[in-house]
Design a protein around this nucleic acid. Sequence first.
DNA 1: CATGAATGAGATTTCATTCAT
DNA 2: CATGAATGAAATCTCATTCAT
Lengths: 206, 206, 206, 206
Amino acid sequence: MAKVTRRERERQQHRREVLAAAQELFSRKGFDRTSMAEIAERAEFAVGTLYKFFKDKKTLYRALILDTVQEFAQVLTTALKTRGTEVERLERYIETKADLFVRHIPTARLYFAQTAGAKYVPTAGLDRDARAVCKGVLDALEAVFRAGIRKGLFLKTDPRMLVLGLEGVGNAFLDELIERPDDFSAETMAGMTKTIFFERIRLKAR
Amino acid sequence: MAKVTRRERERQQHRREVLAAAQELFSRKGFDRTSMAEIAERAEFAVGTLYKFFKDKKTLYRALILDTVQEFAQVLTTALKTRGTEVERLERYIETKADLFVRHIPTARLYFAQTAGAKYVPTAGLDRDARAVCKGVLDALEAVFRAGIRKGLFLKTDPRMLVLGLEGVGNAFLDELIERPDDFSAETMAGMTKTIFFERIRLKAR
Amino acid sequence: MAKVTRRERERQQHRREVLAAAQELFSRKGFDRTSMAEIAERAEFAVGTLYKFFKDKKTLYRALILDTVQEFAQVLTTALKTRGTEVERLERYIETKADLFVRHIPTARLYFAQTAGAKYVPTAGLDRDARAVCKGVLDALEAVFRAGIRKGLFLKTDPRMLVLGLEGVGNAFLDELIERPDDFSAETMAGMTKTIFFERIRLKAR
Amino acid sequence: MAKVTRRERERQQHRREVLAAAQELFSRKGFDRTSMAEIAERAEFAVGTLYKFFKDKKTLYRALILDTVQEFAQVLTTALKTRGTEVERLERYIETKADLFVRHIPTARLYFAQTAGAKYVPTAGLDRDARAVCKGVLDALEAVFRAGIRKGLFLKTDPRMLVLGLEGVGNAFLDELIERPDDFSAETMAGMTKTIFFERIRLKAR
DNA sequence: CATGAATGAGATTTCATTCAT
DNA sequence: CATGAATGAAATCTCATTCAT
């Protein structure tokens, strides 16, 4: 049934090799400071070959980002769909994300370039589709919050704000985790996120 | 008494005009996608003139970032030094920062580029000094948390983590504020930050 | 057997074409007054192409000089190794050099730029290796003089001084030969060098 | 009688200061690698001021070369006019030149740039008048040789060739003297020139 | 007159992209 | 298909020269 020829399989394999080379370089040096020649060299292909797979540099970058983001989004959305209370589901999300990031640091950097960093340091609209995928995750998060609020588990607040808050805290810790992977464990950072976000910092409310 | 000649005053004025043009462009398009020619055109000077003020593009960028960051750092550090309990001082910091960002959006973008974005999209270590200034603010924050913990106001946690958490939440809201300045007010965002960070989200721990 | 592909052969041919264009221009106008654009145009390549062969202008210049100097040095050293008395070997050297220069004027100019001119009009130490090669020839000359002195053929003088003297006389005539190639023959100039250097000018010492 | 005002005297003094600064820089780095700004700074004038004295960079360079060459030519021509046989007059010339060069090394470098080096490394026809002055010295030398030949003192050869030969030997030693002023004395080098040029190198002609 | 800020043409270098083999 | 040599537009930076003060 599978009518993928060997040719086609090889081609896809080569495409992945190019993307892997690109990921390493883009995540380390950014879009503008990475040249097609470098990517070609690291992937052990000729420059011309890159253009067989991707029409231009932007397209290659976009494809890479999309791959990265989809892969992460898939895992994160799944985590949010697990059984349990809304609190448990969010905790699962936090843990999964920490684990995912620490295990795929270059990918995580690129993911961040689209979610956190890209807002301030313009990767010049190289994203569009990737943004949509990210938004999917945020929408799923929002839905969980909305449900939690309805059940009286969470503060009655605009759930979009809760999403922003959770992502803010969480990403701050994940960033630290990525930059200094030897100083912290994924568990520690996930724990911190839960503490800050779910528990009160100020000891006495009264 | 004034030992600055008119010549010198004009020179400084022109330097500021160049920095203003650069700020607009760098904050919008980033370092690599902004050309010296563009800056010159916007500042209404010839390219060569930029090089009278700044020895090269990097130096111009660094000077701009340092200016930006110092200005913000000065205001934020002052806010942290006001009278009151540690909670009140942090609230003052949050409010001041929101107000500052919404009133100086391009500057805020550049400030972010140093604190958040620079980690993922490398502007190739064009910063150094600016980083030190930013760290100064974070250290001041840390000191407030440390004092609050000692007085039993805050959770007994690594104060650096509390700094990370507060900045994470706060910047997430500020980013939204900057990107959609018409949808939210500085007060709203400061309020959200306080809610998320200081109050419990989860209504019932039990 | 031929392990060089046609691709590679062509590449080397093109590299040589670039060097030829550069030689003409550098020898006529010097390093600073020759632009990469001019070289490219004369070689009938795009500017970018030059940078595939040579990483920058200095490198191109150095490669050219080294080629030039090695080629000449090889011929001159060979001439010094011929059979015969020291006087005969020096005469062979003088004749060979005159012949070589008159037949390769642009090359000769560049050779001179390294031996004579470079000292006064600094091409900013773009040489190093080339200097070493030149020194090789001078050392060989020195050895011949040293042998001649030992055999009682020459004046008992510091042989380095004899080298300086011979080169001084010889190059003065060769320079004239190069500048006005139609006024003199290589033989005349070689003859003059031998006369001045080997025979007494002043008829009567007493 | 002297109707030169203080103004005019000052002006001339300033002009000389500019030329002195230029000499140091041009002799060390050459025409192209010396900027007007550098000259201005070293002379402690503003760039604009340089243009009051000299219409452009070329003119400044030419004036400097002309000054230099005239100064040297004057001394050398005088040496050639002393009493004595032709041999003695040439010896006087050789000694004077060596002494002059070792005492004014930067000036000597510039003089060479016009006489020796300029032939190979083009200072792009920045000379004209200077060449004429140099030619004056060479003509005077030629006249001495011509007289010597007539009197039977010298070999019956084209006197222009003798000039070339003498200058060739002499300059070779002077160059060495300039480059390594601590290794040799003016007397040594003048002595070597006389030996090589006037005495036979090859001990036995017969 | 002297000043030095401003100019802008021109030089070097990089790099995404094309295309003949 | 893959290759990699060739292209040329664009970016950075320099510097001789001008001119308002």
